[in-house]
């Protein structure tokens, strides 16, 4: 529901990561990691990003979203597994003492910029 706000934040952070240059630098791609338990709908974020990027330094950039599964580790027996249904108990020993080790991400991993040198390399 707040995907437009998230899209604007992504654009702000990614824009600040563009190296300083005399000539305009084209950002080709923004690589994002989104956990399955983050309150974000990927399609909706894509849609908002396209609209919001148009008038920014990221105009024309693609947003690449990598979905991260929800993984947990049991504090009792150390079992690590992927949670793909709404049950937050250890698969092995049914303990509720678990750590969520991934699945809450909402991270910008990197940006990919046009590299003119590479064109000739």
């Amino acid at each position: 529901m707040h995907e437009m706000g998230i899209a604007l934040q992504i654009i702000e952070i990614a824009s600040a990561s563009i190296p300083r240059s005399e000539t305009p630098i084209q950002v080709e791609k923004v690589n994002l990691k989104v956990g399955k338990m983050a309150a974000i709908v990927s399609d909706s974020l894509q849609f908002c990003f396209e609209i919001a990027a148009k008038d920014s330094l990221l105009s024309g950039a693609a947003l690449h979203i990598e979905e991260v599964p929800v993984r947990a580790r049991c504090k009792e027996c150390d079992t690590v597994w992927t949670i793909d249904e709404p049950v937050f108990k250890c698969q092995q020993c049914s303990s509720g003492q678990i750590d969520i080790i991934s699945g809450r991400e909402l991270n910008i991993e990197s940006i990919e910029i046009a590299d003119e040198e590479a064109d000739f390399g």
Binding site: E28, I108, S110
Partner: peptide, 16 residues
């Protein structure tokens, strides 16, 4: 640009 002509810059920051 062509597809191969890109350079990746690490950011690694939480959007929030």
């Amino acid at each position: 640009t062509v597809k191969s002509g890109t350079r990746e810059i690490k950011v690694v920051r939480r959007v929030l």
